[in-house]
């Protein structure tokens, strides 16, 4: 069976790969958007914490013998806590200044983390095995679907849904949204906004670390894995606008699929297509697909 001159297996396989990447983009851009919404900080270190998450899973396996599931639970907590400490001790000093300084501080953190892991483990990738429970494939008839990739999509979408529920449907989320709109007024109602900021940053980082653990068996675990990803996520944030959670998830998945399809038809362009899309969006809709008018 063929479709646009391509065997359906190839096409479906690439769409699947694109969706998996799109899921990584989605969780990362979600965390980035939530942090930006409340802290007004563009967290350049998001990719570095993603990388830290993947490395932590690898280290847990290597040095302590902790398996995948333990890592999936423990790593987001630990790395999220590290993120919280970073916010409380350093990032906090920059509130009220030009947001550029937040970007620069987190960029410095990227270099520190990347350099640190490179000193410790070198530049070559470390392999992380797929957990036994998720090995093997589903045969869907028209394509072969590795179980692990299906799991990544489910887990990532679940993480997005959980975040959405937390922000839109809980009282904690209501406070968070209130603090995003009017921090001073929210504080005067007795909400501990500074603590909320720490919690938000730690939560966003935990999401990034969670994604890192999910990605560890698929991507090579190495010190540079986060930065390339975070630049793509920046482009996605520009394309989608930071207006809505739903918007950023849809944009991320869509971009993942476009990237996958480009690999089928014109693989040379698969690394650049995202940035071309970004340029087009900037030309025709500068505030982004889902961006609100008036939001810079």
């Amino acid at each position: 069976m063929e479709f646009f001159g391509m065997p359906v297996q190839v096409l479906a396989g690439q769409i699947m790969l694109g969706l998996v990447n799109g899921c990584f983009y989605a969780v990362l851009s979600l965390g980035l958007a939530v942090i930006f919404g409340l802290l007004r900080i563009v967290n350049f270190a998001h990719g570095a914490f993603f990388m830290t998450g993947a490395f932590s899973a690898w280290m847990l396996l290597h040095f302590l013998g902790w398996g995948y599931w333990a890592a999936l639970l423990a790593v987001p907590l630990v790395v999220g806590a590290v993120g919280g400490v970073f916010e409380r001790s350093l990032l906090r000093r920059l509130y009220g200044l030009d947001p550029i300084y937040g970007l620069l501080l987190t960029f410095g953190l990227v270099l520190v983390l990347e350099g640190g892991f490179r000193v410790a483990f070198g530049t070559s990738g470390q392999a992380y095995p797929v957990p036994p429970l998720l090995q093997g494939v589903f045969n869907l008839g028209f394509m072969i679907l590795p179980i692990y990739r299906a799991w990544v999509i489910v887990a990532a979408l679940a993480a997005c849904a959980f975040t959405w529920w937390l922000i839109e449907r809980t009282s904690l989320g209501a406070r968070l949204r209130a603090a995003t709109e009017k921090p001073l007024l929210t504080q005067s109602f007795g909400v501990d906004v500074p603590r909320l900021l720490t919690f938000t940053y730690a939560g966003g980082i935990a999401l990034a670390a969670f994604t890192g653990v999910l990605a560890a068996p698929i991507l090579h675990v190495n010190s540079g894995m986060g930065s390339n990803l975070v630049i793509i996520v920046f482009a996605i944030v520009v394309i989608g606008g930071m207006g809505s959670i739903f918007g950023s998830i849809v944009t991320a998945l869509g971009i993942g699929v476009i990237e996958g399809l480009t690999k089928v038809w014109y693989s040379e362009a698969s690394t650049t297509v995202i940035f071309v899309v970004m340029a087009l969006v900037l030309l025709f809709r500068p505030r982004g697909l889902f961006g609100k008018e008036g939001v810079v």
């Binding site: 920059l94 620069l104 501080l105 520190v112 640190g116 892991f117």
Partner: peptide
């Protein structure tokens, strides 16, 4: 890797 690490530290101190 130390170059990257130290550059990053200087960055953070400067900011």
């Amino acid at each position: 890797g130390w170059v990257t690490l130290i550059t990053g530290l200087i960055f953070m101190v400067c900011v």
